[in-house]
Design a protein around this nucleic acid. Structure first.
Lengths: 246, 246
DNA sequence: TACATGAGTTGACACTGTCTACAAAACTAC
DNA sequence: GTAGTTTTGTAGACAGTGTCAACTCATGTA
């Protein structure tokens, strides 16, 4: 290998994201017996993820990934047929993390509280990792036909919503209705997506609204989702109807 | 100009988008008296818009724009300092068109109907021009600091919402409260954005829900916005609360 | 020990945005 | 009308990109 021993496979990124801290250590510089054959595929994904989280999907370059890892510009192509395949794998993992985040809050016997916790987990994920959120929901995905696994996490996340809704319906003593469960799951999803998208939008920034308004909006919007699901009391009735028809 | 008279400035794109059909015609090949000096700047924007609407923002290339217009790869740089400036101008116009679309439905004396019309106009715009919608709300905008005009249309669109909300509040006899108007305007915006985003999402496609579910979701979601604003009757109560606290 | 395979390398190609230098056309001043 | 200036378009270069092909070399297997 032509005597270049600099920072082959960039210990920084690899240690940070590929191996868990307690995992088997590997020698920085290849020893004579231990050839330091760390999985370049994993290192590429880790580095690509780091770049995307830092500067967004459009400035992901496989050549930069290779450069950062101290390998030739073609090395990543030994493990991925194309840039889109790297992207698809990063997206697949991001979706999986998203689904895991939704599923993270422990289940209690109060379905309303669980719904709230899931909503907060959604918002938390979207706001704390905006570029990752944009990556999976921004709409610039590689062709899903060609990358079947990519959206597994999306289905898992929707499953979390479905489970939640099923619990709510059941607790209310209503007959099981998959159609209704799906409709309500989509409703939650779209509402939460709308809220977090707006909160991180340049278009919103330009309006120069007070932080009070922005936060207040998010609060009432979230609360109204709860109201529509029957798991939150109606507190913020918006513009009052003169006479509510019922 | 070195005797190249092919399709300088590509009559197709120019006629289609720069000039309205009834506008002054211009000679395809420059006549001796009429130098055919059509505005290359406008032609660039038209061509860039066409590319973006067809293949999305990431595959916009200034060199391709130039090629299509039959000019040298540097010609567009006489009119725009950089690719981002072309993009910013396309985005500025898209925002303006969006605001105009929201404002298009004629005002009646039924504010509830007007609200519904605006909501439909929003959805119509987003679904009929998905790439344009993604362009302005997808979150990959050039730095708004450097392109001040770019978001004018966003402010105008928000103004349409504010006006609508002000009318609703006024009709309900409630005191003017700018804070509340803004909050409710954001609520509408986020709800509509969530709905249309989901309807055009690869993540949703992968769930393979029935068209009934997808359309049903959009309907109840839209209807619930109306309910929250007090301009629509509550028809689709979701999971029933056992006992609504009030 | 021969050979096949996998993994990384180099070098090319076509493409991109953008810089510089140049040419021609258009406008302005006399 | 002619000289000079400004505007507009061109040509060539440079560094960056994704990707293809050909190469080396270490490894595992027959």
């Amino acid at each position: 290998m032509r005597g270049r021993v600099e920072d082959k496979y960039n210990a920084h990124a690899v240690c940070r994201a590929v191996f868990k801290p307690e995992a088997v250590p590997f020698p920085m510089t290849p020893g004579p017996d231990q050839p330091a054959r760390v999985d370049l595929r994993e290192a590429c994904i880790a580095e690509a993820t780091a770049i995307i989280e830092l500067r967004g999907i459009e400035s992901l370059s496989l050549r930069e990934v290779a450069r950062r890892l101290g390998v030739s510009h073609q090395a990543p192509y030994r493990h991925f047929p194309s840039r889109d395949h790297v992207l698809a794998e990063v997206i697949r993992r991001s979706f999986a993390e998203f689904a895991a985040a939704l599923n993270a809050p422990p289940r209690t016997d109060n379905v309303g509280a669980d719904a709230l916790a899931m909503g907060m987990a959604y918002v938390q994920f979207a706001l704390s990792r905006p570029l990752q959120y944009r990556l999976i929901f921004g709409g610039a995905l590689p062709d899903p036909e060609r990358h079947g696994e990519m959206l597994n996490g999306a289905r898992a996340a929707f499953g979390v919503l479905q489970n939640l809704l099923t619990r709510i319906f059941t607790e209310r003593g209503q007959p099981f209705d998959q159609e209704a469960v799906n409709r309500e799951a989509l409703f939650i999803w779209s509402s939460l997506h709308g809220i977090v998208s707006l909160m991180r939008s340049d278009a919103l920034d330009t309006l120069e609204l007070s932080p009070d308004t922005r936060n207040g909006f998010a609060m009432i919007a979230l609360q109204r989702v709860g109201v529509a699901l029957g798991v939150a009391p109606s507190l913020t009735p918006g513009p009052q109807a003169k006479e509510t028809e019922r």
